[in-house]
Nucleic acid binder design. Structure first.
Length: 101
DNA sequence: AAGGAGGTACGTCACGAACT
DNA sequence: AGTTCGTGACGTACCTCCTT
């Protein structure tokens, strides 16, 4: 599952995927610093630590996106509810006009 | 005050999908 | 085929609010 965190708040999964490629997220992970240093990480323990750290960050980001996605959906509910109300009012008004005629 | 219930944030593991 | 990434699921810690 992918969450909508696009600024447009469309809650559209496809558009989220298009507009929010993972590469757009600025990251300065330990991997970068590991690569920038001369020797690559080889020890299994260090490899594991690195993986855990990256996954920790990923989980945090994933939860942040999920919260944002839910917030977008909630906003959308409000907007759609308002639209529904005004359309109902419009319908009522039109019916009244037809009654008079 | 003690403690149980519900909510929230976090870290970790497992796994599928995408990438190289 | 191996690696990386995103995310669901689970367990844990901490907090807040009731109830006794």
């Amino acid at each position: 599952m992918h969450f909508c965190v696009s600024s447009g708040c469309t809650s559209d999964l496809a558009s989220y995927q298009l507009h929010n490629p993972t590469s757009s997220i600025p990251q300065c992970s330990a991997e970068d610093s590991a690569h920038s240093s001369q020797k690559p990480i080889e020890k299994p323990l260090e490899k594991r630590e690195l993986r855990l750290m990256k996954n920790r960050e990923a989980a945090r980001e994933c939860r942040r996106k999920k919260k944002e996605y839910i917030r977008c959906l909630e906003q959308r509910v409000v907007v759609l509810e308002n639209q529904r109300k005004s359309l109902m009012e419009e319908l009522r008004a039109l019916k009244d006009i037809h009654k008079v005629e």
